[in-house]
Structure formats: C-alpha cells, structure tokens
C-alpha cells in the first residue's frame, strides 16, 4: 500500500471512535426522537411499543399545551437580547485582558472562573437558596441601578420606551451575562493574540491612531471569531440545563404527558434552533472578513 493510501486509511481509523459513536448512539437516538414524535410510546417488559398517532403530538404541543408556544417565543426573544450583550461584554473584556498591566494574570484567572463554576446543580440550588437571595441585593449592580432613580432618570429622557426597557433589562442581567461569557472571552483573547504584530507596526508607520487601528485592523481581523462566538452563545443558551424549555422537555418525558409529546416538543425546538443558527450564520457571515 502506498504511503498516501495508508494516510487515507489512517484518517478514517483516527475518526473511527466518532463514526461509531455517531452511528450507534447519536444518529439512532436522533432519528428515534423524530419517530417517537409521531407515536405514542408505551414501555413493555421487553422494551417499548409504538402506536402511530400522526401529528397529534405536534398539534397538542403547539395548540393545546398551556405554555409551550409562549415559552418557545420567550426563549428566542431572550436570545436576541442576550447574545449581543454577551458578544459586546466578552469582546471588550478580551481587549482589556489583552493589554499589558500589573495583575493581568490574576485578572485573567478570576475572569475565567465562570468557565469552571457554570454548574447545573449549584445554579438550581442558588435559585431557591435564602442566603444567596438575601445577598443578591448587594451583589447585583442591576438591582442597585435599576431602582427607581435610574428608571426615572431614563424615562425623563423621552427616548423610545423599547430602548429604555432594553437598557434596564441589560443592566439587570449583568451578572448573568458575565457568567455566560467565560468561553467567549477565551475565544476572543486567543484571537487577539493571533493577529500578527507586523500589521500594527505597519499601521504605526503610516501614522494610524489607536482608534483607526481598532476599526480597521482589530475588528476585521476578529470578525470570523465574532461568528464563532455568536454561534457558540446561541448553542450554549439553547442547550443549557437551566433553560426553561429544556426543563419542560425533560419533565414532560418523565413525569408529564409522555415520551411522544416530549419528542414532538424536542423536534420543534430543534427546528427552531436550526433555523435561528442558519439565519444568524447567513447574516453575520456577510460582513465577516477573512485575512487569508
């Protein structure tokens, strides 16, 4: 066997674990979920049996279920609110952490902590915990700022109400945004490090200001990563266990109205994710700049 041929075989062999896992566990489960969504599933001692019910589960999820359609729309709305904020925060933080200053290592260590602490259990427990709730008032700058004073100040400016509401919600969700930005900061920071120094040096020679450097070099060079970060944030928000819809899909399957309905909800939910991701990629990639 020629060397090139052996390399091809080796390529497949290295990928073999994933190919096996994808076909045996992932694909089978994915197809079955879609299959289940058209059926009523009952567990039997030997396994399970399916009764075909057509679109009944979909009809129930979308037209009869008291909260599924609304929750889905809310979740998507939150996403449009959250992702730009995460993007802006992580981009800015990465720019700051990329500068040289005393205590940079400490700052980075603390700012990456959310990557470690984004725990499902802790999150759930904190939501109903007394001490956390009591201390929240002091901890959330949102609660301090969004008090009556800020609201009055903002509403007296006579800006459009939608904009004001956006600002208020944004301020309130600062801790949440910070918590969700760990990996994104990491991605941007890695990207900043990879911009060749020579470009900035050339710009210096031409007499470019820091402001011009940012808009004409840093931003375009990082634009592919903006796409990556947006996609990652959407996936992260949609698949995290503290997402209301994910929790509903889960409880419907095991304590609620059954596997079939849960599968139908999953399928609708997945279709929504897929559509939003497709749309986002189509829109964002229009102005992504590729250096090579």
């Amino acid at each position: 066997m020629s060397f090139e041929r052996r390399k091809v075989v080796a390529g497949y062999l290295f990928c073999l674990p994933f190919i096996l896992g994808f076909v045996l566990f992932f694909l089978v489960s994915f197809v079955r979920t879609i299959l289940f969504s058209f059926n009523e599933l009952t567990l039997t001692p030997e396994g399970f049996s399916l009764t075909f019910v057509g679109l009944a589960n979909y009809h129930y999820a979308l037209n009869v279920h008291p909260s599924f359609p609304m929750d889905l729309l809310t979740e998507i709305g939150n996403l449009f609110m959250e992702v730009p904020l995460i993007l802006a925060f992580s981009f800015f933080t990465a720019l700051v952490l990329n500068q040289r200053f005393i205590g940079r290592l400490t700052a980075r260590t603390i700012l990456f902590l959310p990557v470690i602490l984004a725990a499902g259990v802790i999150f759930r427990l904190e939501e109903k915990d007394m001490i956390t709730q009591l201390s929240m008032g002091a901890a959330q700058p949102g609660l301090v700022f969004s008090g009556a004073a800020l609201q009055n100040l903002l509403f007296s400016t006579r800006l459009p109400e939608a904009l004001l509401n956006f600002v208020l919600t944004a301020v309130e969700s600062i801790p949440e945004i910070i918590r969700a930005s760990g990996i994104q900061v990491l991605i941007f920071l890695a990207g900043l490090q990879s911009i060749p120094r020579s470009i900035y040096e050339a710009a210096d020679v031409e007499g470019a200001t820091a402001w011009e450097n940012f808009w004409l070099i840093t931003l375009p060079m990082l634009s592919p990563l903006i796409l990556t970060t947006v996609v990652y944030s959407i996936i992260d928000s949609f698949t995290s266990a503290d997402n209301a819809l994910v929790a509903m899909i889960r409880s419907t399957a095991f304590v609620g109205q059954g596997f079939g309905l849960s599968a139908a909800m999953s399928t609708v939910y997945f279709a929504a994710i897929f559509a939003i991701l497709g749309l986002t990629i189509a829109v964002v990639s229009r102005w992504v700049f590729y250096h090579e």
Partner: peptide, 24 residues
C-alpha cells in the same frame, strides 16, 4: 462531512435525544 457531523452533535441539545438514549 465527518467534521460537519461533529458540529451537528454540538447543536443538538442532549435533552432532545435523552429518551432514545435511555431506551438504548
């Protein structure tokens, strides 16, 4: 294609495939 499938597994929430996984 394999790489695209890798990204695909990332997009699917694990909760979506949990029932069949459980049965498997």
């Amino acid at each position: 294609i394999i790489f695209a499938l890798v990204l695909f597994t990332l997009v699917v929430p694990p909760q979506m495939v949990m029932v069949p996984m459980y049965l498997t």
